[in-house]
Design a protein around this nucleic acid. Structure first.
Lengths: 206, 206
DNA sequence: AGTTGCTATTGACATGGTGACAACAGCTTG
DNA sequence: CAAGCTGTTGTCACCATGTCAATAGCAACT
């Protein structure tokens, strides 16, 4: 008779366990709406007691906010590869890079930004606004316009607005398949070029 | 002793009661996120028993879907007032009308489209997609482009994408105050003009 | 190897929200 | 004023969430 003391559960480092639960939560929240996902589901998926979720994230809502935060974090562009050509060329490069990012996230990305619903959640709104802001800043820098201009705030505002079109166009491409990547590329590049090259100067004269 | 038979509650026509509950639900769902609003809250707000909500809408989710449907319904433009001038002029008129609509809804509109969260709700997605589609069709017709063109599907797709920019720009204007109405008007009009006049022809050659 | 201590993890409990359903009561019609 | 129709209520069973004391992996030190 071997004294096999197989442990019922393994004890992990807090960071690892946190990450593991977060992964499962991301998957489930991506599949079903918030109210349809129970903490029991997440706990079962992670092979963990339900109470552990509360221990690490406080509440279901806390976990949800972490998921949102994780999902909307956009990597920073590698600016060393940006060409030195005309505005149109730099824009084209930026848009192409942007579509690469979207393509890599695929359905997961859509699950995050694809659904807009009723429900004024200030926390979620704050997180998304922050993500939009940094994304806009990145884009402006990548394209090479000086951010420190006097009208920098307005520039970032219209770039954030443009971000709305990026998301919507991405949905058309990824989920609905009504536009090809090439078409999206063309549309976004031309629109952004016009926005930065034409409209923005006009705006400053208002 | 007067035989005051003050009734404890009034019996309303189903449509009226439905509408009343819906109004309260719209208000509450606009203030707090879905999970933070209980059917008890809604029932109290409407001065009604909680069970009545289930009777009229089946479930909390059913009520929520009704709210979303109601909120994203956009009125149809009165095309009799559209000028006959150039594309740019018609676009300018359409955008102005669009901003009037947004302005009229104000904060309520923001409560609907302002928050994007994680959570793939197919029903909500379908409702919003439908609303976007009819809005795009309206815009195309108002601007005066023939919808029956061979590339009509692609045209509507890029107009839907443009709709994403309209929403984002509206948020910048209404909630954040980072852009004035005049600035939004200029940006959207120029972008849409470029989209329809320049980019769309390019797209067809792809 | 045995013991001790730390803490990650569990399991049970209390609370509150949701949906179903039978009973009740306004209102209308004869 | 009686009777029926149905809008409305209140209760019941079930499920989800958050809290907390108890448990048990695991490492360090005899």
């Amino acid at each position: 008779m071997s004294t096999e003391t197989e442990p019922r559960w393994r004890r992990l480092e807090p960071d690892q366990r946190r990450e593991q639960i977060l992964d499962c939560a991301i998957r489930l929240f991506g599949e079903r709406p918030y109210a349809e996902v129970s903490t029991t589901d997440i706990a079962r998926e992670a092979g963990v007691a339900r109470g552990l979720i509360n221990h690490y994230f406080g509440s279901k809502r806390g976990l949800y906010l972490e998921v949102v935060r994780r999902m909307v974090t956009v990597p920073v562009a590698d600016r060393s590869a940006v060409p030195d050509g005309s505005l149109a060329e730099r824009v084209e490069f930026s848009v192409d890079w942007l579509l690469d990012v979207i393509s890599a996230r695929g359905k997961t990305w859509v699950a995050v930004l694809g659904t807009e619903g009723v429900g004024n959640d200030p926390e979620v709104e704050r997180i998304l606004a922050e993500a939009d802001e940094t994304a806009a800043e990145n884009l402006v820098r990548t394209v090479g316009l000086r951010d420190a201009e006097p009208a920098g705030a307005e520039l970032r505002a219209i770039v954030r607005a443009f971000g709305g079109m990026v998301k919507a166009a991405g949905r058309e491409w990824i989920t609905h398949g009504t536009l090809t990547r090439e078409q999206v590329q063309l549309v976004l590049a031309e629109q952004l070029t016009a926005l930065l090259g034409e409209t923005f100067p006009h705006l400053q004269r208002l």
